[in-house]
Design a protein around this nucleic acid. Sequence first.
DNA 1: GATGAATGAGGATTCATTCAT
DNA 2: AATGAATGAATCCTCATTCAT
Lengths: 199, 199, 199, 199
Amino acid sequence: MNEEIPLRDQILETSRHFLFEKGHSSLSMRKIANKIGVSATSIYLYFDNKDHLLHTLIEESVEELSVAIELAAEEANGPIDRFEAIINGYVDFAFNKPEKYQVIYMVRSEAMARYPKEKFRKARRCYELLVKTIQEGIAKRVIKVEKPMVAAYSIWAQLHGVVSVVLNQRLDSRIDRKEFLKESVNHIVEGFLVRTTVS
Amino acid sequence: MNEEIPLRDQILETSRHFLFEKGHSSLSMRKIANKIGVSATSIYLYFDNKDHLLHTLIEESVEELSVAIELAAEEANGPIDRFEAIINGYVDFAFNKPEKYQVIYMVRSEAMARYPKEKFRKARRCYELLVKTIQEGIAKRVIKVEKPMVAAYSIWAQLHGVVSVVLNQRLDSRIDRKEFLKESVNHIVEGFLVRTTVS
Amino acid sequence: MNEEIPLRDQILETSRHFLFEKGHSSLSMRKIANKIGVSATSIYLYFDNKDHLLHTLIEESVEELSVAIELAAEEANGPIDRFEAIINGYVDFAFNKPEKYQVIYMVRSEAMARYPKEKFRKARRCYELLVKTIQEGIAKRVIKVEKPMVAAYSIWAQLHGVVSVVLNQRLDSRIDRKEFLKESVNHIVEGFLVRTTVS
Amino acid sequence: MNEEIPLRDQILETSRHFLFEKGHSSLSMRKIANKIGVSATSIYLYFDNKDHLLHTLIEESVEELSVAIELAAEEANGPIDRFEAIINGYVDFAFNKPEKYQVIYMVRSEAMARYPKEKFRKARRCYELLVKTIQEGIAKRVIKVEKPMVAAYSIWAQLHGVVSVVLNQRLDSRIDRKEFLKESVNHIVEGFLVRTTVS
DNA sequence: GATGAATGAGGATTCATTCAT
DNA sequence: AATGAATGAATCCTCATTCAT
């Protein structure tokens, strides 16, 4: 591999790759090391143990997703614009960096159980941004939602469902990915917006 | 464990339990056997190997979900009723038999790659029921959808997203499960129905 | 398999087949039973254990080889004729019933260590016939050998070497089996015979 | 065991020992490790798997036998001398390093089927040396053979038969090993040599 | 005669991790 | 900063054998 890239990053990158391609249970320290071309011991110079590696993976992905969404949101004007920016930011991240996106959801219970609770809060940052945006929309009467928190979580959950189906290749082969995605996101969003063009 | 229950069923039950609680990668033949209180060898009397066990698990869950949905659909009158029955059937199954529901999605790529393709088709049975129901609804002008197949898949994906969030305990603790679920399902469904009570 | 054949014989036959095709280490009671289409337990109705089965296998092969050679020897007139009959009997048995022949040599030390010593003596029956024949030949001045016992063993060993090479498929592909065999046997025998056609 | 000897060599040595004493089917990675006093895992630091270990064993034995014979052949003058040197080289190797000799023939079909074909060719090196020597002998009219290739293979097969009988302890206890060997080799060789001392 | 259910021991192999260098 | 050697525990799976029926 490219020798310019710091080993730590190579480890994270390779881990993500394995996780994405082969799933959690076939991620092994040795395989990572072999793929990179270093000794397995070297990984321990950067990560205390496998859990630490996995947690770092999650943490960095969550952080990157948060930043991506925040960046997208910043450029938006007005709540509707920002609302859509957040959703598109989420979907775009998922498809542009699927390996990083998957990490957030793939590493399940076992590793998660040992994941420091406080770091979960970070993950909520952009969720709270969504809640705030919805509340603004309500105030400006452009978004129609009863419970912003519930709506925000629901949107997130639905988006995740839609994105997962595509990324996990569970989509029926007769359906066009892009069309499916556009339609689905549209459907998720539309119910929340106040119809401006009533005849 | 209860000695009345056939060992084969105990194995399946225990496997599901492990899968649900600890995730795919910590499901081992030994652990299953130990939990039940039999030798690991005994499992091989009922299943050729771990793959066979996992595939049986998936197969039975898919079958049970299909039957549950079909049963719910049968009792319905008219496309809208049936549309809602299918969706409720799905959600109810997920919450009444979460371990069985999870199995369908949890056992990922590795094992799936070796899962006989023909059995996937069975899984589509209730998906096709949904498509047909939507098409009927369109014919009767009670459902408004451009591409029934895309819509059906989208609904399924969104439902799965919503259900997963709850089952995986990723829901914000301040949000009430039931409310979240009701609101979400409502939101997923409503966009498709032709508004009958327009003022 | 043919239901006419007694199970005991089917077991022996199948065992020989496995031994010949796959070697000693992949001969398992279950595989034998599966191949025949009975339960593994059934084998124990006819054989106390695996050792007993193997020993029976050896014993029957040795017996059959002995009988074959004795039969061949009986028909011969005079020591030279009988000498050649014995050798041809050995070689013919090896090639007509290779699976039975191989059994005699294939099942090695481990099982042999537990093989009742007295049964080894049986195996010597035709060896002693050879010794006696040689001695007769010496008496009649048609065979020229200093130590009949040594010669007999040597002949046997050389024949086994030659036969093994062919049966184990270790023969160079450019060499014709039959020619190799004929030449080799010829060479082994000829040194012992008194040249009758000396000018 | 001696701690001076590299583990890799100890593994090979111990494997040979097991193979020789107990036969192929009771050679297990664990047993090897236990005998040496290391963990079974350690073997995998030097050999990819059991096959690799077995193949290495064969390869090294074949190589050593080849070298031994070539060395013996080099010192000889003239084809007859060399002819005998080769044969003696073979027999001497078998008796001086019986464990290494046995390896060449003992590891049968199963493992052999996966043995890289190209390495078989190496094994033929000294066989071809024998062929060449016979051809030289024919040219110089000291060896009388019609088909050198066939003869070479036949000699090899007969030698192997004789050597095996002794090494496998199948020799009648009343027969002296050395005498048996000397007589046998003599008998194998003599037929090929042109009688120089005709009266 | 024959079997199904069950098991303890052992098979090869992989794993995360440690330690001395 | 990096590694080679080593390991205990775990993985799936197969084996010969037993026992009740």
